[in-house]
Amino acid sequence: MQKVVIYTIILLTCQQASTQEKWGVHFKPSMNFVTEDLDILDSQVGFGFEFDISYKFIDYFEAYAGWNWNSFKITTDETNRNDLNTFGYTFGLHFIHPAKSTNLSYFAQIGGVYNIMRLENENGRTVAESDNGLGWEIAAGVEIALGSSTWHLRPQIGFRSFSRDLVINNLNSQIQLNHIFLSNGLIKRF
């Protein structure tokens, strides 16, 4: 009987150890650089952030889902300064592979976005808004474990593509927003 109890404790301990750090919570602020010249943009540089939750379902692979928001400055004429904001949901897969004998891992990401474009004036009022629409994103970078803790830094570079129709000054305009993003996220694994 004593052997059964010892084997059960060892089995439960091993099972618990293998399920540790399957979940991750990730916050990443980003700088965005538009890859095409859009006439409505005042600046080709924007900013934003993303929050997501990930789950490692097999070695090296995890699924993620989250929420993002990005903002770009635009000018509709010489006197009005507006913001073009995109926000919505993100989803996809991460491939994460640890480098041997270091606290470093390499990762690649492929996923989708389900976003809205919104044009806001300088007072924060909505001038135009699109419907939700699908887009895609890819990224790569490194993940750095901070000591022996479950906190990690994740600098990355990526590309996001998203297209929606907006009615601006009574004209229907399709806006193709392709941008490169640079971010340095913080992850808590548990």
Rank of each mutant, 00 (worst) to 15 (best):
W69Y: 09
K28I: 10
N121Q: 09
L119I: 03
H26Q: 06
V25M: 08
T86A: 01
F107Q: 03
G124L: 07
A17R: 11
S71Q: 14
F181S: 06
A65N: 03
G185W: 02
F57I: 07
F107D: 05
P155R: 07
N178G: 11
N132K: 15
N172R: 12
M117N: 12
Q156L: 10
N172P: 05
T35A: 10
G185T: 07
H94F: 15
N80W: 00
F47T: 04
D59M: 09
Q109F: 02
T150K: 13
Y7E: 14
D59T: 09
N115H: 15
Q20T: 09
L119K: 06
A140G: 15
F47N: 13
T102G: 11
P29H: 09
W69C: 06
A145I: 08
Q44T: 15
F162S: 03
Q15A: 14
E50H: 00
H94P: 04
E129P: 03
R164H: 01
Q2T: 14
G92D: 03
S183F: 06
F181P: 00
L93Q: 01
S105Y: 06
F95R: 08
V5N: 08
D52A: 08
D165T: 07
R160N: 12
I9G: 08
T102N: 10
G158W: 02
T8M: 12
G158R: 05
K188A: 15
F27N: 04
T75K: 15
Y106F: 15
G111L: 01
T86C: 00
K28T: 11
T13R: 08
K188M: 14
S148H: 14
F190Q: 09
K3P: 02
I9Y: 05
F49D: 01
L119F: 07
Q15C: 14
G46P: 03
F27Y: 10
M31S: 06
L84K: 06
I144A: 12
S43H: 02
I96M: 00
G135E: 02
S149Q: 01
W151I: 06
F159W: 05
L11A: 10
N82G: 03
L104K: 11
F107E: 00
L84W: 01
A140I: 14
I40W: 01
F61N: 11
T126M: 02
P29N: 06
N82L: 02
V5W: 11
L171Q: 09
C14T: 09
R189M: 13
